[in-house]
Structure formats: structure tokens, C-alpha cells
Design a protein around this nucleic acid. Structure first.
Lengths: 199, 199
DNA sequence: CTATATAAGAAACGCAACGTATCTTGAGAG
DNA sequence: CTCTCAAGATACGTTGCGTTTCTTATATAG
């Protein structure tokens, strides 16, 4: 091992730390993740991390943010239900066991630190732009009468999956996804559409 | 203060510990709750607690279970929406900031200990018997066509409120409750009813 | 009423991680 | 080439963990 000892700075260092944090998350999980562990893995020391982030929650949120959410194509199969199942499945894959623990862990830290709360809220409140598109296409095809999707409803898939995921240790079967679509989300959309027709 | 020094045993001691744990929860929250703190408040010592519970999560879940959920009357105002708002409001009151933090905290401990996971699941999965009753009455009144409420939907109010509560530090305004009822739950019920009619 | 088993309670342990303070030394800026 | 700043190393005191050891009070048996 020709370990070239160099002293990193700025972005290079910062990215190394965040990548180390992400790796630690997958190795030991959020609860067992320590600043010292991340520092060791990143080949740096605690003070360097503490100079940049206030604590574990902030560090992990930053590491999470760095895992670039490369924009994915919006499902467009020509059928509302199929699109929804595809979307739900994709979200589920992202919200795997690791992410569930991260969210749960950060959430519990939220209550000590109002600033963390805001960070987490920002991250979770990202309304899903895919829903209005998918529903809009279904309306164009005549699968649903025209109506507006309330923001709360657009956010709902994320909430449903996160919920289910956290209670099942992140393992969501396709049956459970189908249940969410068929018993909850699809009926909800139909109910909203029906309401719009009467108005 | 005539502090009669007596040595408690069995149930008396156990209850004292659980009550102390509950009090600590309200004073310092889950994250900051320590076994030592509970022991001190209960006037006992750590080993006594460790002999009975494996850790913080188990202790807190036991303390929570002890806070008897005295059965409440099911809202019956003669209007579906009013009943739902009343029910949602009541759930919200129970799921205050303290409970939200407890759930978040225990959830993050869940990932270390599968046994804790099962304990928490048991507690959260308690389907709400009120929903079928309320919906049943609405059907009898003709507010909705007859249909069956899927279990997943019966559990949904709890999930919705927990979600919202955890993201807002447990402070849920009546506006947000109304939003959940009007934009989500009521349309969902109508959509399910509609589906049943067509079948 | 005494003897014995049992568990409460106190004290101290080593361990791990916390968050901070101090110091050196390497790297970039002029 | 010098100066400045932050990286990185080290060590600090603190806190809570979970456990061990020991005593002493209390419930129960004889």
C-alpha cells in the first residue's frame, strides 16, 4: 500500500467525510454510528468533523443529501394503476432498511434540536412531482374525471411507504405495495375525482 | 416529611419504576432519558431495573403500556365528517409531543433489537375499532353506500396523525386535522364506497 | 419465634463515545 | 519565501452504559 500522505482540504475533505458517513451508515446503522467512527474511516479526526457539523444528525443528513437523487423518469405505462405501482415500488427501493433507520434515528434527535427538525422536514416534505404528472396523464386518457391533487395527497405516497417501511424493518413486499395502491391510494384518487365532478 | 424508609418489592416496586419512567419521559424526553435517572427518581438503583427490563426501549414501552388506555366512547354526532374530526382530534391529543418522541426514539432502537420491533408493532398495529363503527353508522344513515373498510384503511388515521405529528413536533392544529379529514380520509372512504357500488 | 432464602439497594467497576482544547505541521496565498 | 489558516493528532473531563460485588431488609418456612 503506497499510502501517499496528503492533507486534504475544502470540498475534497468534505466529500470524503460525507462518503465515510454514508458507508458507516450502511455498515453499522444510524444508532451505532459514531463521529469517531466516521472520522477514522475518513482518515481524519473528530475536530475536523465538529468544525463542520453540529452533531450526528446534521452529519448524516448532509451525507444523505449528497447521495444525489438523480432525477428518474416518471412512469408512463398508459395505465394509472401500473404507473402508481411502479412509482411506489421505486420509492420503496430507495426507502430501504438503512434509510428507514436513518429517518427514525434522525427523528428522535429532532426533538432535541429544532434546527435538525427543519432540516429533516425539508427533506421529507419534498412533494413528489411525479404524482401530479401521473394523475394528469390518467385524466387526459379519461381514466379519471379532471380534478386537482391537493398537496397533502401528493405527499401521501412517501408517508405511506415510510410508515410501512419503518414498521416492517424496511422490508416491503410487492403485496403490501399493491395493498397500498389498491386499498388506499387509488380509491383516494377516485374519491377526490368524484368530489370534483359534483362541485 | 416523614420519609418512612421501606424496601419495596414485587408489583409495588415495579409500578414505582414505571411511573418514574413515565415522569422522566415527560420531563426530559426519550432521548435524554437514562436508566440512572429513572432509578434515582424511583428511589432505587440501576441493577433493580436491569433485572426486569433489557434496556431503555423495553422500559419505556412497559411504562407506556401501563398508562392505561381507558376505552373512550366512539363519537356519534349523526354526521360522518363531524365524527371523523372528533376521532382524529382525540387521537391527536393522545399523540402529543411526548408520545411522538417516544415512538421516534423506540423506532430507532427497533433496528438493533428485533424483539423491541415486535413490541412496538404490537402497540402501533392496534387497529382502531372506532373506524368501522363510525363508517357503519354513516352507511346506515345513507351517507355512504355500503362497503367494507379494509384493515389497512382502518389503521390509516393513526398513521396519518403519527406522521404529521412527528414532522411538526407534535403540534397539530385543527386546520391540519381538517385537511387530513377533508383532503384524505373522507375522499378515500367515498372512493372505496364507489368501488363497492360498481362491483 | 427463629432461620434461611431471596431480592433490594448501594457502590464501584471498565468501557465507549461524547464534545472540547491544545498543539504541530502541512498546504495554499501573497 | 513567508505567512496564515485549517488539517490532523492527542489528550482531556464527563456522562451513561451494563455489570459485578457486597450488604441488608423482608418474605417465607420450619
Amino acid at each position: 500500500m503506497t499510502e501517499i500522505k496528503t492533507r486534504r482540504r475544502g470540498e475534497e475533505l468534505e466529500h470524503a467525510i460525507l462518503d465515510a458517513a454514508w458507508a458507516e451508515l450502511h455498515d453499522v446503522g444510524y444508532t451505532a454510528l459514531t463521529i469517531e467512527g466516521v472520522a477514522a474511516r475518513a482518515g481524519t479526526s473528530k475536530p475536523v468533523i465538529y468544525r463542520r457539523w453540529a452533531g450526528r444528525a446534521e452529519l448524516v443528513l448532509a451525507a444523505w443529501a449528497r447521495q444525489a437523487p438523480q432525477p428518474q423518469p416518471i412512469p408512463d405505462s398508459g395505465m394509472l394503476r401500473t404507473d402508481l405501482v411502479a412509482l411506489f415500488t421505486r420509492i420503496t427501493i430507495r426507502h430501504d432498511a438503512v434509510m428507514s433507520e436513518v429517518i427514525a434515528g434522525v427523528m428522535s434527535d429532532v426533538f432535541r434540536d429544532p434546527e435538525v427538525a427543519e432540516l429533516l422536514r425539508e427533506r421529507l416534505r419534498t412533494a413528489m412531482p411525479a404524482i401530479p404528472t401521473i394523475v394528469g396523464r390518467a385524466i387526459e386518457r379519461g381514466e379519471l374525471p379532471p380534478f386537482e391533487v391537493p398537496p397533502r395527497v401528493a405527499r401521501l405516497p412517501l408517508d405511506l411507504i415510510r410508515n410501512e417501511s419503518m414498521l416492517c424493518n424496511g422490508v416491503l413486499t410487492s403485496d403490501m405495495i399493491a395493498e397500498l395502491v389498491d386499498d388506499v391510494y387509488l380509491p383516494l384518487l377516485r374519491g377526490l375525482a368524484q368530489r370534483a365532478v359534483r362541485a
